[in-house]
Computed example of a mutant assay.
Amino acid sequence: MSTKDSIPDHTGDSTAGVPASERPADGLSSESRLANRYGAPKPGLSARTKIVLGSLAAAAAVGAVVFMAIPSGAGTLTSKDVGFTIPDATSAVVDFNVTKPAEATVDCAVQVLSDSYAVVGWKTVRIPPSEDPTVSLSTSVRTDSLGVTGGVNACWIVEQDS
């Protein structure tokens, strides 16, 4: 029997059976050293706080869906390409419909594209107020080279000066 086995350890050290090379010099555990260096970990959110935040996020999502679903009072503005003809390399005729508020003046950008999708012709067409909200139009567009397709690029409501 060795003397080390017969002598009880009364120091209260929990590292008595651990070799000295593996024991920290200060006797602190790794959790204690991390807490001393970086501060104690912050507590997480309570269950009540998580429920409140989740409810607020759900209410905001429902509100956004309702807001997007309600039509605006300004009316809708849409265009639809009906057809086109390419009589020669210097012109094209584009047929289209525009649905707009009856009292609104609208400008539409009509374009003609080449086979490489380059814009070879462009024209802005003004549509005055009318009784019918849907207007059918046909416009001739001059082109720089042979076009292969034509249509409306965009339409917008023109603000009238009072």
Results as ranks from 00 to 15, higher is better:
residue 43 P to A: 15
residue 71 P to L: 01
residue 30 S to V: 11
residue 59 A to L: 12
residue 70 I to Y: 12
residue 42 K to V: 11
residue 75 G to A: 04
residue 70 I to F: 02
residue 54 G to V: 12
residue 104 A to E: 08
residue 83 G to W: 01
residue 83 G to P: 05
residue 76 T to C: 03
residue 71 P to Q: 05
residue 101 P to K: 14
residue 61 A to R: 12
residue 98 V to N: 13
residue 32 S to A: 13
residue 91 S to D: 09
residue 63 G to E: 02
residue 23 R to E: 08
residue 34 L to H: 07
residue 22 E to T: 00
residue 87 P to V: 00
residue 54 G to C: 10
residue 49 T to E: 10
residue 87 P to Y: 01
residue 84 F to R: 01
residue 45 L to S: 07
residue 30 S to K: 05
residue 45 L to C: 07
residue 64 A to F: 08
residue 84 F to Q: 09
residue 51 I to V: 10
residue 62 V to A: 11
residue 49 T to W: 09
residue 35 A to T: 04
residue 44 G to M: 11
residue 69 A to V: 01
residue 31 E to Y: 04
residue 53 L to S: 05
residue 44 G to N: 13
residue 96 F to H: 11
residue 73 G to K: 12
residue 43 P to H: 13
residue 64 A to L: 15
residue 79 S to R: 04
residue 57 A to E: 09
residue 44 G to W: 13
residue 85 T to S: 03
residue 86 I to R: 04
residue 65 V to Y: 02
residue 56 L to Q: 05
residue 57 A to S: 02
residue 45 L to P: 04
residue 67 F to P: 07
residue 95 D to R: 10
residue 96 F to L: 11
residue 47 A to I: 04
residue 33 R to E: 07
residue 27 G to Q: 09
residue 75 G to K: 02
residue 71 P to I: 00
residue 81 D to F: 03
